[in-house]
Nucleic acid binder design. Structure first.
Ligand SMILES: [Mn+2]
Ligand SMILES: [Mn+2]
Ligand SMILES: [Zn+2]
Ligand SMILES: [Zn+2]
Lengths: 133, 133
DNA sequence: AAATTAAATGAGAATGGTTATCATTCCGAT
DNA sequence: ATCGGAATGATAACCATTCTCATTTAATTT
């Protein structure tokens, strides 16, 4: 059980060849554009299967789930509330302190999700530009 | 504009009188049980309005949005993947380091969301009990 | 190679949380 | 009392995701 079919391979290749954080619909559309159209249900099932196999990683944002390559070290995300850009960062001290906080509550931590919201450098720069006019 | 109507007051009172993290449907059902039934659409609008007014706070979990009292100091959450319990914690160092990480990327942070997943003390205890049998 | 069997696919229906519509009701200000 | 902007509630619509099911694909066994 759990085959790496042509469709799943196509999804995996797409994700591995980029640094983006894809949602199911984007994967579906991009594959269609490339001529290897894959049914949307299959995309959802494929993404789930690939994640279970540890071949892709995901972040659950408010509305949609997004997938990215799994061959990067663990990191968290900052999301620009203005342009939607997703930046990555990792801070080992934060990770350590999370563990500490969990321990303190007798909580057996198995994972976490940290997302920072705000304006990315580019958006901040642009609005500053505009202010100068 | 933005009135504190009877319905919204009822929602607010309900949330303020508890330490729970309510979703819209729970609020709707609880108010109905108490005889002050409020339409589900009104509950959604009310919760949004109350949050905009700073009278309640919210956390966006994977599936649903949950609301809680706003009169507590900022905190983050640990969610038990076994029983669904939501525990709260706050760690000023984590908060500070988040700011630092944002600064490093030229990111103008306006908010964040940190959720730890795992098993709460009670669930860990229970499975240990069971192991002893 | 043919048959067997389990898993995967895809089209479309269904689900579930949330938002939009719209006629009606409420309420504050003139 | 009247007017006009908000709020309400029933319901439809939305949208991401999952489910159903007939069909296809592909390993495994004869
Ligand atoms: Mn990432
Ligand atoms: Mn809380
Ligand atoms: Zn931006
Ligand atoms: Zn628990």
């Amino acid at each position: 059980m759990k085959r790496l079919t042509t469709q799943r391979q196509a999804i995996l290749d797409l994700i591995n060849a980029s640094n983006r954080h894809w949602d199911a619909e984007e994967v579906n559309r991009e594959l269609a554009d490339r001529g290897h159209s894959v049914g949307i249900a299959t995309v959802y099932r494929g993404l789930t299967a690939l994640e279970e196999a540890g071949l892709v990683a995901s972040i659950q944002l408010a509305d949609r789930k997004r997938y990215e390559r799994a061959d990067k070290q663990h990191h968290d995300h900052m999301i620009c509330t203005e342009c939607g850009a997703i930046e990555e960062f990792s801070h080992h001290k934060i990770e350590a302190l999370q563990e500490a906080a969990a321990l303190e509550k007798g909580f057996e931590m198995s994972g976490h999700q940290l997302v920072l919201f705000g304006r990315c450098a580019r958006c901040v720069g642009e609005s500053t530009e505009r202010g100068k006019l």
